[in-house]
Amino acid sequence: MTFSFIQSQIAHQKTQNLYRSRKELDKGTGRLLIHQGEQYINFSSNDYLGLSQHDDLKSAYIRGINQFGCSSSSSSLVTGYTKVHQELEELIADWLEAPKCLLFSTGFSANSGVLSTLGQNKSTGYFLDKLSHASLIDGAFNSKALSRRFKHNDISQLSNMLSNSNCEDKLIVAEGVYSMDGDVGDVSGLNDVAIKHQANLYIDDAHGVGVLGSTGQGTIAQQNLKKGSHLIQMITFGKALATQGAAIAGSEELIDYLVNRCRDYIYSTAMPAANAMATIASIKLCQTEHWRREKISALSQLFKSKLDASIEITDSQSSIIGVFTGSEENALYCQEQLKNRGFWLTAIRPPTVEKGKSRLRVTITANHNDKDISELANCINEVLGKCLQNK
């Protein structure tokens, strides 16, 4: 027996060019990946700083495993919280200039868990940027809070919403760097509005931390935000920091509340201490090796300059660049053609992006080189150019 709707839903996905499937990889991180014995230059990884294969991280993992084993074997409130977890939390809080921080197993869990926990009353109002990540949307709309969405980066519309809101507690929710467009949010403008309307501000900086800021602290540091107890920053470790997990940075009162009330934190097994140890090593590299941020910035500019003027891209200010293909069919066609030429890119389709805005998501890392960038741009010019002419 199965659910009555499964077959028809899967069939619909296929007819609309929206069907998703996994690709088993022999090697999947770093500049190169191997699939079914074939090697490809990887432009789909979020390993922005190129740290996933770094010897310092590997050594830290091994030391952690030798000292603590492979698993924490318990939630943080039972026996899963070690001195290494505490050291990582203190390092992050100091790095982000926040009073305190709290570790989570994943960024999705952090976002959905925190918004679900803070939205316990109908007197709370959430105001989300239209392009907010699915984890933020789930957390907000699955809570009791009154949730509304404002146009992407539209500070004026947000301000009007806040002026007309009767909610006792208000929370603005946005991202530092948007994962599909690569554009940077007007975090400074959001902060000004939050202070003016006595609202709190939650920034999902999953794609900003490590990449932006003088030592990789993310968009809040880069845009010199005025700090306060109203400010909450979420960072992830599985992208630029190249390990696994996430953290919430905020006031001591907020962190204490989450420890006591956030179900995603209370009932989840803590990340392995070895992972925490590797993340400490990663953050230290991130803080000191500024050349990695400089390199991905230079390579991103090079890529844009090599594309034909007829090819439309997102308004990116990061190492995430969306190359529009139009239809879902075009996106899949281009993905396959580029794969045949030795490049691994992912076709991004609805519902991840709006219908009619399917794209190739290009992510540039510090491990790429000028030759990789130029060859990719030339192939995109050829494949997408022909595709758009013929369609």
Rank of each mutant, 00 (worst) to 15 (best):
G69V: 06
G69A: 04
C70M: 08
S72C: 01
G80V: 09
K83D: 14
K83M: 09
V84F: 04
Q86F: 10
Q86C: 05
E89W: 10
I92Y: 08
A93C: 06
A93H: 12
E97L: 11
A98S: 14
P99I: 05
K100L: 09
F104Q: 09
T106S: 13
G107R: 10
G107N: 06
F108K: 12
F108Y: 14
S109H: 01
A110C: 13
S112F: 02
S112C: 11
G113H: 08
S116Y: 10
T117W: 00
T117H: 02
N121C: 02
N121I: 01
K122V: 03
K122E: 13
S123W: 04
G125W: 10
F127I: 06
L131H: 08
H133E: 08
A134V: 15
L136F: 04
D138G: 03
A140W: 01
A140K: 03
A140E: 07
A140Q: 03
F141V: 09
N142E: 07
K144F: 15
K144A: 11
A145C: 03
S147G: 08
R149V: 05
R149M: 15
F150A: 09
K151R: 12
K151G: 02
N153H: 07
D154P: 10
S159T: 14
S159D: 15
N160A: 13
M161D: 01
M161T: 05
M161L: 15
L162N: 05
S163N: 14
N166T: 11
D169Y: 10
K170W: 07
L171R: 04
L171N: 02
V173S: 04
A174R: 05
A174H: 10
E175I: 01
V177R: 11
Y178T: 12
S179A: 15
S179T: 09
S179C: 13
D183C: 04
D183A: 06
G185M: 05
G185V: 06
G185Q: 02
G185H: 02
V187C: 15
V187W: 00
S188I: 08
L190T: 00
V193Q: 11
V193T: 15
A194W: 05
Q198V: 01
N200V: 01
L201Y: 01
Y202V: 04
D204L: 06
H207Y: 13
G208T: 09
G208Q: 10
V211S: 09
V211F: 14
